[in-house]
Each structure stands twice: as C-alpha cells, then as structure tokens.
Amino acid sequence: MLPRLAVPLAFAVQAALVALLFAMYGYGRHLADGRPDEAFANAERVLDLERALRLPDEAALQDTALRWDGWARIANEYYVRVHFPATFLFLAWIWIWRRPAWPRLLAVVAFSLAAALAVHALYPLAPPRLLPGGDFVDLMNVYGPSSYSTEPGEGMTNQFAAMPSLHVGWALLVAWGVIRYGRARLRWLVAAHPVVTLLVVVLTANHYWLDGIVGSAIVVSALAVTVRLEEGRRPGRAGLSARRDSVGA
C-alpha cells in the first residue's frame, strides 16, 4: 500500500512547496506596495534609459499596432491565462517525466522569485499603462480581461512591481526546459513562447522592454548558477586522479 502512495504523496509535497513559494512571493510583493511617487519617478528613468539604449518606443509601437485592434483581447487573454498555467504544466511535466531535472528547475524558480521580490522592494516601478499623459492605452481595462483593478492601490495586487517581468523570464525558462529536456522535433516551436510573451507584455503596456530583459537575465543567471552547482557535485579530474593513485597504491 505504501509504495502505491509514495509517488502521489511525493508529488503533493512538491506541489505544496511550489504553492508555498508563490504564496510567499505574492504576500511579499503586496507588502512592497505603497510608494507611488517613487514608482512613477522610476518609470521616467526607465524610459530615459531605454531611449538612451535606442530601444523601440513602446507607446509608438502600441499606437501603430492599435490601427487594427482585433489582437488586443487575444493579447490580454495570453497575458492573463497563459503565463501561470504554462509554467505549472511545465513544472509538472518536469517532475513526472524528467525528474532528475526537477531540483535544478525548482531552484531556478525559487531564485527568480526571491530576486524579483528584492527588486520589487528596492525599485518600485509603475507600468506603462498607469503613466499619466495618455501616451499608453491600458488594453486590459479597455478590452478585457484584466487581472488588475482600475485604480492602483486597490485589491491585493501590487501594481508598482513592473520590474522585472517574470512573465518573460519564465516563458524563457519554459522554452529552454522543453528544448533541453524534450525529445520531440516540434519542441523547437516553443521558442516562440518567450518572443510572443515579450511582445504581449509590451504591447499591452504592462511592462517595459527593460522589465523583460531583467526578468530574462535573472532566469539565465539562475540557470548558470545551477550549472556550476551541478559541476561541483561531479568528480573533477583531480578527484579522479587521486582515486586512480589510491587504487594503484
């Protein structure tokens, strides 16, 4: 009886651990709310930096795209309904079918949540859709569906946490993981996921280009750290030489 329960019990424990990580992140993100003046000032700095880096103007890009607005609700649906389900399905797939990779992927998720929470606390940032002046259209509230209240500060969601974009970071993680651990030839199609996600978060005015860049950098950094950790667990050449010498002795 116990062997039959071992696998579902282990899965339930890992699922509860992931849920706890997300709950702690959500609560910590909410606690980091409440500095709108600083968040709007940081938004101006981000826009200035993007112009200095010659990144495409988000407002002009959105204005051009809205000449045909049939895509707006689709983009909102993608933003609201694809991010978390895709991430959770990916993690479930890793645990069930690629379990040796599970500790690495869980570590990347935990690291990215912690890093994002630190940035939220240290660098509050208003998203483009909340900026005054009418340069950006808040597509989520105009076309729906929206995961945010119409006014910042209402509800449990910190709307001044645009930096970094974990939507983009985790889309990159999902694409990397499916390509790295998958077997089907069609797995390469998932490379479109982070590209579409980046366009969606920018065109819906939920994030700046730099939010996606920083979110991706956090995930890439976490993956790089896990590579070093995995290499540290493997016997090195010096260790193998020492073993050979001891055997020869």
Score class of each variant (00 low, 15 high):
207 H>V: 07
201 V>M: 02
177 G>Y: 01
184 A>K: 08
16 A>H: 07
188 W>V: 02
188 W>E: 06
246 S>G: 11
115 A>N: 06
181 Y>L: 12
158 N>F: 09
27 Y>P: 04
52 A>V: 10
196 V>M: 02
56 P>G: 03
147 S>Y: 13
159 Q>G: 11
138 D>W: 07
103 P>V: 05
170 W>F: 15
28 G>T: 06
72 A>S: 04
68 W>P: 01
194 P>R: 03
219 V>I: 12
211 D>R: 08
74 I>V: 11
88 F>A: 15
60 A>Q: 09
83 H>I: 03
97 W>G: 03
144 G>C: 09
24 M>S: 15
235 P>N: 04
21 L>W: 13
129 R>P: 00
180 R>V: 02
230 E>R: 11
150 T>V: 14
137 V>N: 02
203 L>M: 12
1 M>I: 13
180 R>D: 01
63 D>N: 15
95 W>Q: 04
85 P>G: 06
12 A>M: 11
119 V>D: 05
82 V>H: 00
145 P>M: 01
215 G>L: 10
180 R>H: 07
241 S>R: 14
160 F>D: 08
87 T>H: 08
216 S>V: 03
186 L>A: 12
184 A>C: 01
227 V>S: 11
139 L>M: 00
96 I>A: 15
242 A>I: 03
192 A>C: 03
48 D>L: 15
69 D>R: 12
81 R>Q: 02
82 V>L: 11
45 R>W: 14
229 L>P: 01
113 L>N: 10
236 G>N: 01
56 P>D: 05
62 Q>W: 00
227 V>T: 11
171 A>Q: 00
147 S>E: 10
239 G>Q: 14
154 E>S: 14
199 L>F: 13
209 W>R: 00
247 V>R: 10
37 D>V: 13
125 L>D: 07
193 H>G: 01
197 T>I: 04
133 G>V: 09
149 S>Y: 14
157 T>S: 11
163 M>D: 06
86 A>Y: 05
248 G>D: 14
143 Y>M: 03
123 Y>M: 07
66 L>H: 03
59 A>D: 08
100 P>Y: 07
232 G>L: 15
24 M>D: 11
